[in-house]
Simulated scan of single mutants.
Amino acid sequence: MRGDRVEIVIDAGDTTRSYEVVATKAGRRVDVTIGRGVVVVAEVTRSGTPVRMARFMSSRVLALVEHPVAEAALAQEPSPPEPS
Protein backbone atom coordinates (compact mmCIF):
# COMPACT_ATOMS: atom_id res chain seq x y z
CA MET A 1 0.00 0.00 0.00
CA ARG A 2 1.12 3.51 -0.62
CA GLY A 3 3.00 4.74 2.43
CA ASP A 4 4.35 1.34 3.47
CA ARG A 5 8.04 1.57 4.19
CA VAL A 6 10.91 -0.61 5.34
CA GLU A 7 13.92 0.81 7.15
CA ILE A 8 17.21 -1.12 6.96
CA VAL A 9 20.24 -0.42 9.18
CA ILE A 10 23.52 -2.03 8.13
CA ASP A 11 27.02 -2.28 9.54
CA ALA A 12 29.40 -0.42 7.21
CA GLY A 13 32.65 -1.16 9.00
CA ASP A 14 33.31 1.67 11.43
CA THR A 15 29.82 3.21 11.12
CA THR A 16 26.21 2.28 10.45
CA ARG A 17 24.15 3.29 7.45
CA SER A 18 20.41 3.55 7.21
CA TYR A 19 18.34 2.94 4.07
CA GLU A 20 14.62 3.22 3.46
CA VAL A 21 12.41 1.69 0.76
CA VAL A 22 8.95 3.26 0.41
CA ALA A 23 5.88 2.31 -1.62
CA THR A 24 5.51 5.55 -3.57
CA LYS A 25 2.28 5.05 -5.54
CA ALA A 26 -1.15 3.60 -4.82
CA GLY A 27 -1.29 -0.13 -5.36
CA ARG A 28 2.39 -0.72 -4.70
CA ARG A 29 3.78 -2.56 -1.71
CA VAL A 30 7.15 -3.33 -0.17
CA ASP A 31 8.24 -6.99 -0.03
CA VAL A 32 11.10 -8.36 2.08
CA THR A 33 12.81 -11.61 1.09
CA ILE A 34 15.56 -13.27 3.13
CA GLY A 35 17.50 -16.18 1.72
CA ARG A 36 20.96 -17.54 0.90
CA GLY A 37 22.75 -14.84 2.88
CA VAL A 38 21.00 -11.95 1.12
CA VAL A 39 18.19 -9.66 2.26
CA VAL A 40 16.18 -8.23 -0.66
CA VAL A 41 13.77 -5.33 -0.10
CA ALA A 42 11.70 -4.45 -3.17
CA GLU A 43 8.89 -2.08 -4.08
CA VAL A 44 6.53 -4.10 -6.29
CA THR A 45 3.41 -3.37 -8.32
CA ARG A 46 0.07 -5.13 -7.95
CA SER A 47 1.15 -7.74 -10.49
CA GLY A 48 4.40 -8.42 -8.62
CA THR A 49 6.79 -6.64 -10.98
CA PRO A 50 9.66 -5.06 -9.02
CA VAL A 51 9.99 -1.30 -9.50
CA ARG A 52 13.06 -0.75 -7.32
CA MET A 53 15.12 -3.15 -5.30
CA ALA A 54 17.78 -3.03 -2.57
CA ARG A 55 20.03 -5.99 -1.69
CA PHE A 56 22.09 -6.39 1.45
CA MET A 57 24.32 -9.14 2.85
CA SER A 58 22.40 -10.63 5.76
CA SER A 59 25.56 -10.73 7.90
CA ARG A 60 25.73 -6.91 7.67
CA VAL A 61 22.08 -6.17 8.50
CA LEU A 62 21.69 -4.89 12.06
CA ALA A 63 17.99 -4.03 11.93
CA LEU A 64 15.12 -4.37 9.51
CA VAL A 65 11.99 -2.50 10.56
CA GLU A 66 8.71 -2.65 8.65
CA HIS A 67 6.43 0.38 9.02
CA PRO A 68 2.97 -0.46 7.62
CA VAL A 69 0.71 2.43 6.76
CA ALA A 70 -1.89 3.08 9.46
CA GLU A 71 -5.56 2.60 8.60
CA ALA A 72 -6.31 6.06 10.04
CA ALA A 73 -3.85 7.64 7.61
CA LEU A 74 -5.66 6.00 4.69
CA ALA A 75 -9.00 7.41 5.85
CA GLN A 76 -7.56 10.94 5.97
CA GLU A 77 -6.28 10.91 2.39
CA PRO A 78 -8.46 12.95 0.05
CA SER A 79 -10.41 10.81 -2.37
CA PRO A 80 -10.08 11.51 -6.10
CA PRO A 81 -12.85 13.64 -7.61
CA GLU A 82 -15.69 11.67 -9.17
CA PRO A 83 -16.36 12.22 -12.86
CA SER A 84 -19.62 13.98 -13.55
Rank of each mutant, 00 (worst) to 15 (best):
residue 55 R to T: 09
residue 56 F to C: 00
residue 67 H to G: 08
residue 22 V to N: 13
residue 39 V to A: 13
residue 9 V to D: 05
residue 42 A to Q: 14
residue 14 D to C: 01
residue 52 R to L: 00
residue 17 R to F: 00
residue 9 V to K: 14
residue 75 A to D: 13
residue 18 S to C: 07
residue 5 R to I: 02
residue 34 I to Y: 03
residue 9 V to N: 07
residue 8 I to H: 02
residue 15 T to P: 03
residue 76 Q to T: 10
residue 80 P to L: 10
residue 23 A to G: 12
residue 40 V to G: 03
residue 49 T to G: 11
residue 21 V to E: 12
residue 82 E to L: 13
residue 75 A to F: 06
residue 55 R to Y: 04
residue 59 S to N: 11
residue 28 R to G: 07
residue 45 T to M: 03
residue 77 E to A: 15
residue 4 D to Q: 14
residue 12 A to V: 05
residue 61 V to P: 08
residue 43 E to L: 01
residue 56 F to Y: 02
residue 8 I to N: 05
residue 53 M to C: 03
residue 30 V to D: 06
residue 11 D to N: 15
residue 69 V to A: 10
residue 43 E to R: 09
residue 74 L to K: 11
residue 22 V to L: 13
residue 78 P to V: 08
residue 1 M to D: 09
residue 68 P to T: 04
residue 64 L to W: 07
residue 44 V to M: 08
residue 74 L to A: 01
residue 47 S to I: 00
residue 10 I to L: 08
residue 19 Y to A: 12
residue 17 R to I: 04
residue 31 D to I: 07
residue 28 R to P: 00
residue 57 M to Y: 00
residue 35 G to K: 11
residue 70 A to Q: 09
residue 70 A to L: 13
residue 56 F to G: 05
residue 26 A to T: 14
residue 60 R to Q: 06
residue 68 P to R: 12
residue 25 K to P: 01
residue 50 P to W: 10
residue 54 A to L: 06
residue 73 A to T: 15
residue 83 P to V: 12
residue 27 G to F: 12
residue 74 L to W: 05
residue 42 A to V: 09
residue 81 P to R: 11
residue 68 P to Q: 03
residue 80 P to H: 06
residue 41 V to D: 03
residue 81 P to E: 07
